[in-house]
Amino acid sequence: MSDEVALLVADIYEAAGALRRSGEATAAAEGQTQARWQVLSVVSEQPMSVPSAARRLGVARQNVQRIANELTKDGLAVFTANPDHRTSPLLALTSDGRHVLEAISARAYASHRRIAARMPEADFAAVRTLLHSLTRAVRQLDQDDPDADRPATGRHPH
């Protein structure tokens, strides 16, 4: 069974790479990168601090800060005062930023429709169910003992 898990993990990484390349091409068609698209998207519903956006995206705060600075320089986002934290402003989209995000999203939707046309809808539901179960299992394992699967030499002293 562990061989099947290893093969599944390899397949997931391969699929993630293909989706990442597709996302990069989608964003590039609007003069953006996938990373910029993700930051535009995460702050599109409501302004958010850089640390909050980074946590939501699961990436380093420094990367989001760099991208946020680029987006503001390009007029796609602005920093506004954060009433809850004086030193951590909120990042919000400008109307140009909303327009770019809408254009990228429309391209992504068209791409998703083309992908969906190549596979039965039931397959998507089954894969999503499996991925949710896998994610839950990995998170539970990490919560039980995050160092359990590391070799003894790689363990951090407590």
Rank of each mutant, 00 (worst) to 15 (best):
M1T: 09
M1R: 13
E4P: 00
V5N: 06
A6V: 08
L7T: 09
L8Q: 05
L8V: 01
D11W: 12
I12W: 08
I12N: 07
A15G: 13
L19W: 08
G23Q: 11
G23Y: 11
T26M: 12
E30D: 15
E30T: 14
G31H: 11
T33H: 01
Q34V: 03
Q34P: 00
Q34A: 06
A35C: 09
W37M: 11
W37F: 14
W37G: 04
W37L: 06
Q38F: 05
Q38T: 07
Q38W: 06
V39R: 06
V39Q: 03
L40A: 01
V42S: 05
V42Y: 02
V43M: 06
S44P: 08
Q46I: 00
P47S: 06
P47V: 01
M48W: 00
S49R: 05
S49G: 12
V50R: 08
S52M: 09
A53D: 12
A54G: 02
R56G: 01
V59P: 06
N63P: 07
V64G: 09
Q65D: 14
Q65N: 10
R66W: 02
E70T: 13
E70N: 07
E70Q: 12
T72L: 01
D74Y: 10
G75L: 01
G75D: 01
L76P: 09
L76M: 03
A77K: 05
A77P: 08
A77I: 01
F79W: 02
A81C: 03
D84K: 13
T87W: 03
S88H: 10
S88T: 15
P89I: 09
P89M: 14
P89C: 11
P89G: 12
P89Q: 09
A92T: 13
A92V: 05
A92F: 03
S95T: 00
S95P: 08
D96T: 00
G97I: 01
R98Q: 07
R98L: 04
V100D: 02
I104V: 14
A106Y: 01
R107S: 12
R107I: 05
A108M: 12
A108F: 10
A108D: 08
A108V: 10
A110Q: 09
A110M: 08
A110F: 11
H112T: 10
H112Q: 11
R113V: 14
I115M: 05
I115W: 02
A116Y: 06
R118A: 11
E121I: 05
A125C: 03
A126H: 04
A126V: 01
R128K: 15
S133N: 14
S133M: 15
T135C: 07
R136Q: 02
A137I: 15
V138D: 02
V138Q: 07
Q140E: 07
D142W: 08
D142F: 11
Q143A: 13
Q143V: 14
P146T: 09
D147Q: 15
A148D: 05
A148T: 05
P151D: 01
A152Y: 04
A152N: 03
G154I: 00
P157G: 11
H158P: 00
H158T: 15
